[in-house]
Amino acid sequence: SKIRITWGDKTWEWDGDDEEVWKRILEWARNLGDEELWRHVKEWVDK
């Protein structure tokens, strides 16, 4: 399956939905430097 994140007018996609993928997404969000996006992603990961 895919994980799709839409933020503003951008959309990103990742293949898979296991823990490793979420770790990569969390790292990606942090590297993007958008605090609010990172917080949202972290909330999803922690669920």
Rank of each mutant, 00 (worst) to 15 (best):
K47Y: 05
E13A: 04
W14R: 00
D9Q: 02
W12D: 02
I3G: 02
K23Q: 14
W22A: 05
T6W: 07
G33D: 12
D15A: 10
K10E: 11
H40Y: 15
R4L: 13
S1P: 15
I3W: 02
S1E: 14
E43C: 09
H40N: 09
W12A: 04
R4T: 12
S1A: 15
E36M: 06
W28C: 02
V21D: 03
V45E: 05
W38Q: 14
G33S: 07
W38S: 07
G8F: 12
E35Q: 07
E35W: 06
L26F: 06
W12I: 06
R30S: 14
D46P: 07
N31K: 12
W22E: 03
K47E: 09
K42Q: 13
G33C: 06
K2R: 12
D34W: 09
W44C: 03
E36T: 05
W12P: 00
W12H: 06
E35D: 12
I25S: 00
W44R: 06
E20L: 14
W14D: 01
V45I: 14
D17G: 15
W44Y: 09
W14H: 01
E13N: 02
E36L: 06
H40T: 12
G16A: 15
T6G: 04
L32P: 01
E36I: 04
E27K: 04
I5V: 10
D46R: 03
K47I: 13
K42S: 13
W44A: 06
L26S: 04
T11C: 11
E27G: 05
W44K: 03
I25W: 01
W28G: 00
K2A: 09
L26E: 05
N31S: 14
G16L: 12
R24Q: 12
W38Y: 15
E35G: 05
N31I: 10
R30G: 08
I5W: 04
D15Q: 12
R39Y: 09
V41R: 00
I25T: 01
R24S: 12
E19P: 15
E43M: 07
E43L: 07
D15V: 10
H40A: 09
R39D: 12
K42P: 00
R4Y: 12
G8A: 06
D18M: 12
K2Y: 08
E43V: 04
E20G: 14
K47Q: 13
R24E: 08
D9H: 02
R24V: 14
D17V: 07
W28H: 02
G33Q: 09
R30M: 11
